[in-house]
C-alpha cells in the first residue's frame, strides 16, 4: 500500500508548483511593465500614454461598431489617439479632451453612459437586483431551515437535531 502521507506531500507540491508557474508567468509581465518600454523609433512618456489609453478606452470608435478608440486598429481611431495625445500635451485636462469628443460626436461616443439623471438606471438596477436578491435568498434559506426544523420536530422525538 502506498503511503498516504507521501502522496499528500506530492499533491501539496503539485499545488505549490502550479501557483509558482502562474506567479512566474505574471511576474514577467509585472516586471516588464515597471520599466519604461524602450522603442528605438520614438520616445514615449509612460504617464502620458496611460492618460491617452484611459481616455481612448472610454470613447467609441466611430468607424467601427463595438470597439473603443483604444482597441480599434482602424485609421480613424489611430488619428484620434494622436489627437488625444496632442490635446493633452497642449495642456487640456482629460475631462476637457473627453468633452471635446462629446461636443463633436454627441453622447453616443461615450462607451459608458454618464452616471446622471435617467442613466442611473443602467448603473443602479443591477446592483439593486443583486442586493435585493441576496437578502431574499438568505431569508428564504433561513425560512426553509425553520420549516425543516418544524417538520423534524413533528416527525418524532428520535430525530435529534
Amino acid at each position: 500500500m502506498i503511503s498516504v502521507k507521501k502522496i499528500a506531500v506530492q499533491h501539496v507540491l503539485l499545488v505549490v508548483a502550479l501557483i509558482a508557474a502562474v506567479a512566474l508567468a505574471v511576474q514577467e509581465g509585472w516586471g516588464a511593465q515597471e520599466e519604461s518600454p524602450a522603442v528605438t523609433t520614438e520616445q514615449v512618456d509612460p504617464a502620458l500614454e496611460e492618460q491617452v489609453r484611459e481616455i481612448a478606452a472610454n470613447l467609441r470608435c466611430p468607424t467601427c461598431r463595438a470597439l473603443s478608440v483604444l482597441d480599434s486598429p482602424s485609421g480613424m481611431a489611430q488619428e484620434m489617439r494622436g489627437l488625444i495625445r496632442d490635446q493633452l500635451l497642449s495642456g487640456k485636462t482629460p475631462d476637457e479632451v473627453t468633452a471635446y469628443f462629446v461636443e463633436r460626436y454627441g453622447e453616443w461616443i461615450l462607451l459608458q453612459p454618464k452616471a446622471e439623471g435617467f442613466n442611473w438606471t443602467v448603473w443602479l438596477l443591477p446592483v439593486l437586483l443583486l442586493a435585493g436578491g441576496l437578502v431574499f435568498v438568505l431569508m428564504t434559506a433561513r425560512r426553509w431551515v425553520q420549516q425543516g426544523q418544524a417538520r423534524a420536530a413533528e416527525e418524532g422525538q428520535e430525530g435529534e437535531i
Partner: peptide, 11 residues
C-alpha cells in the same frame, strides 16, 4: 430620453 447613447466594454 430621445438621445442615442452607447454602452460598451467599460460598462
Amino acid at each position: 430620453r430621445g438621445v442615442k447613447v452607447s454602452v460598451g466594454a467599460p460598462y
